[in-house]
Design a binder for these strands. Structure first.
Lengths: 117, 117
DNA sequence: TTATCGTATGAATAATTGTTCATATATTCA
DNA sequence: TGAATATATGAACAATTATTCATACGATAA
């Protein structure tokens, strides 16, 4: 009546040891979470082309100034964008080259997904 | 009394033309959204080491079998993992090499962020 | 100073989503 | 067939979150 269990305890404990800390995995997930919103992705996509001020981004993304400002704060906290102030305006740009790389790879993943149908 | 506006209409319309379609941007954001959850990131991280069955993943991630099964469905739909059935067990693995690349870059972004403090 | 422009922010609301619990399906072994 | 194992799934609940609205803050020009 007793059946053999499938769980590979040796494999499981080995992987548990190798795995990064929960904190690091949380932070990594956090970066993706911030990139995982259409409005923020539009912002990223626009900033790939040029430094832009808040009003311009709102125009380009068909969003309100307020919505964009809120989302820019999220992107700023995740260190995905940086900004400089010039008079009344605040000019935003991508923080480092990782962002564009992440964007390109995800785009490639999507496009290859379409091919395989 | 009229002040000069900052909006650069030429720049805005140019970028609007260059930008990818809303559909593509939505799909790209969707990939990141799926990666943007701690549980799913733990799953990815474990699968980077080895093909694993559902029970093993639950053990490794300290989650329930049900929670993992639900999340694996999300990962499957996003084509981030694939699986094969062998008897009672279902063995899951990463779908393509993009996933590990995305993971590595995000990790690097985090780690460099820590250095800059 | 006053009016205007650009941006930021707090509160409220609506929508999305991850987990739990119970249960169903499927496979293997006695 | 019946019991045990592995996985999947639907419903419900709690928590998170993106947007809107109103308003505040800061800078500039008249």
């Amino acid at each position: 009546m007793e059946q053999e269990k499938i769980v590979d305890l040796e494999k499981v404990t080995k992987i548990k040891k190798i795995m990064p800390s929960d904190d690091l995995l949380f932070d990594i997930a956090e970066v993706f979470k911030v990139l995982g919103d259409t409005t923020r992705m539009k912002i990223i996509s626009a900033l790939l082309e040029s430094e832009l001020c808040v009003g311009d981004i709102a125009e380009i993304t068909n969003s309100t100034q307020s919505a964009i400002s809120h989302q820019l704060r999220v992107l700023k906290q995740a260190k995905l964008v940086k900004f400089r102030k010039e008079g009344k305006a605040a000019y935003y740009s991508l923080d480092d080259e990782h962002i564009s790389t992440l964007y390109e790879i995800a785009k490639k993943h999507i496009e290859e997904g379409y091919e395989h149908r």
